[in-house]
Amino acid sequence: MAESEEIILGDLDRRLLRYLQAEPSLGHAELGERAGVAASRVTRRLARLEEAGVIRGVRAVIDWRALGYAVDVSLRITLEKSHPRAFDEFLNAARQVPEVTEIQTFLGRVDVRLGVIATDLAHYQAVYRDRILTLPHIADIESLMTVATVKADEALPL
């Protein structure tokens, strides 16, 4: 399907996507049973949604807290942009820091936001000092430590 084409989702597509979001491990037969259609129809519909780029993949979402990470910090970074490749060099280096779980870019005063996790404050301090502060082209950093996550739902309202 061409990139410029917009896919029109029918009721069945939305039902399948809702079930798949809720339980990504469901097989086509079980999805079909829940949606009230044959597994072969589910297979065709899901293939169409994948081909159109609506479904980009199915993945496991791992709770990093269950693995011993207790600290979550959001770093808002302003870059020194006098170097023509400052943005690219910073992003490439930030991708190499294992504790960086998210990288977002912005237009405005803040250029980049990094999501950083650590096992405890001592680990965070070491990551910040040894890995973050050594990233190229940083002009300013503001750190925001997460106190509570009120909503972190990846499901779409289908």
Rank of each mutant, 00 (worst) to 15 (best):
L114K: 11
R131A: 10
V71E: 13
A93E: 13
R41H: 11
S4G: 11
H28C: 08
R18P: 01
V61Q: 15
A29Y: 12
V112L: 06
R129G: 03
P98I: 06
D130M: 02
L121T: 09
T149R: 15
V97F: 09
A93M: 10
W64T: 15
T149E: 15
Q125I: 07
T105E: 01
A93N: 08
L156S: 01
A22T: 00
V54N: 04
G57W: 08
L16W: 11
I132A: 04
F90E: 05
A155C: 05
R113L: 06
D13S: 08
V100K: 03
H83D: 07
A122L: 14
H83F: 05
R34A: 03
A155Q: 12
L158F: 15
R44M: 11
V147L: 15
V147W: 13
R59E: 12
Y19V: 06
F90K: 02
E154I: 12
A139G: 09
S25W: 03
F87R: 13
V73T: 13
A86L: 05
E3G: 05
L114V: 10
V100G: 07
V127I: 12
D13K: 07
V42F: 06
S82W: 12
T78Y: 03
A39E: 15
V61P: 04
V112F: 00
L144H: 14
F87K: 11
E142C: 05
R14L: 12
T119H: 11
H137Y: 10
G32Q: 10
R76G: 12
A52K: 08
D13M: 05
Y124I: 09
A39D: 13
R18K: 14
Q125N: 15
Q125P: 09
K81T: 12
L158R: 01
I141Y: 11
L46W: 03
A22E: 12
G115Y: 05
R14T: 01
I55S: 03
H28L: 04
L144R: 14
E6L: 04
W64G: 08
I103A: 02
G32A: 10
L20R: 05
T146E: 13
T78F: 01
S40F: 10
A86F: 04
R109S: 13
E99Y: 00
L107G: 09
G68N: 10
A35I: 06
L16I: 13
